[in-house]
Design a protein around this nucleic acid. Structure first.
Lengths: 214, 214
DNA sequence: ATATACTAACTAAACGGTTGGTTAATTATG
DNA sequence: CATAATTAACCAACCGTTTAGTTAGTATAT
């Protein structure tokens, strides 16, 4: 059953993965600068030196975590954007999926938020991660505008608005919890959120004409 | 002309203010944890010990900066929410003002974002700052819903969406700059943003019925 | 007026704990 | 045995914070 190398591991997971998991969790929670290498080691149940055995330095560990996230996400989101169905139906499906996805993966949404704020690696992040998704979404919306299914909006600004309203909900979770007085990620809350966002976005993007003709 | 004590200041601004200005700028740019006390001192052109002469510690300096921001903002935003005019017109006016305001004060929008992400002082921040604004906005929207000027949305989620889409634009500036290929805070870009957001929000919130009756 | 006492503002230097990173030796594995 | 994995101990640099002392202006006493 053992895969490679030695296996006197603490648990099931290989050491390197445990380190990356712990790092991702802490980077997401407290940010890179506030995270101590020793903390990562403690949570991963690993000697601190092991981190430097597998990674050049703390920065390299961050890169590895981010890269792993990007690799994992590159399949997920685009699937719902590349489908060639009706733009409007596709948009609603996408929103359902997107909100669920952000909620389920709030850990790396937060990590991305830290990264965007710090701006330290924004160039490579934009190239590797944001741009591909951005272009896909832009084309999708532009197609909807051309076909008249969506009113003549700016695709770029529409993307910023949709992404912004959803990402904010994930990032500001602790604040929203206080304001709402309940877990914003609970099943009911989240389905309420989906309904509200879908209605808001759809009505915000549909052309007048289509509505009048009903 | 001298007010009190000695006045061998470096420039016009009192030392304490220079420290707070430098701190605010750096906290906003790099975050609290990545900001070195020495950097603050350098930019404020002050001996590092002066920071501890005026503030108990680095944390106290952060609190002081945040408090100053909140004090300054508490007059600004609510003015546009407390006016008792028509909800719909008020909403458009508010969006114009709000987007301009965030753009003009991106420094402490970013600082607030760092704070929200870290979540360390979220409780007091929510009480002192977010809750009052949140309640004002909620009542405003609820009133619009009751009067039928706004379709039956959840005021809470509507607020999160509107705040989110606008805050995101400010926070993600470096990223948006890359994606858009131009300064997102330039006059043209910003006025374009305002138009797009206003149209999106208004159409997203107006009831069907009103539109059909036209 | 002049000397004296006092105070706020300011500085250079260092302290002491923390942190990212290293090393050399040890243990397990194939 | 050779290689990979793991560990305890260590280190230098850094960073927030303190300290001990200086400067200059102001009030007070003589």
């Amino acid at each position: 059953m053992k895969k490679h190398g030695s296996e006197r591991n603490r648990g099931i997971e290989p050491t390197k993965n445990r380190i990356m998991d712990a790092a991702q969790m802490l980077f997401a929670k407290k940010g890179f600068d506030a995270t101590r290498v020793q903390e990562i080691a403690d949570i991963a149940e690993v000697n601190k030196a092991m981190i430097y055995y597998y990674f050049k330095d703390k920065d390299a560990l961050l890169y590895a975590v981010v890269e792993r996230i990007i690799k994992g996400i590159k399949d997920a989101i685009p699937r719902y954007l590349e489908e060639e169905d009706n733009t409007i139906d596709g948009l609603e499906t996408f929103l359902d999926f997107y909100i669920e996805y952000l909620a389920q993966n709030s850990s790396f949404v937060r990590l991305m938020a830290w990264e965007i704020l710090s701006g330290k690696h924004i160039q490579s992040l934009a190239m590797d991660y944001f741009m591909p998704m951005f272009f896909l979404m832009r084309e999708k919306i532009a197609k909807g505008v051309d076909s008249g299914q969506i009113r003549p909006v700016s695709p770029e600004h529409t993307i910023f608005s949709i992404v912004g309203m959803n990402v904010f909900y994930t990032i500001a979770l602790p604040l929203i919890q206080i304001l709402l007085g309940g877990d914003p990620l609970s099943a009911e809350m989240l389905s309420k959120r989906k309904e509200e966002v879908k209605a808001f976005v759809m009505k915000g993007l549909l052309p007048f004409e289509d509505r009048r003709r009903i």
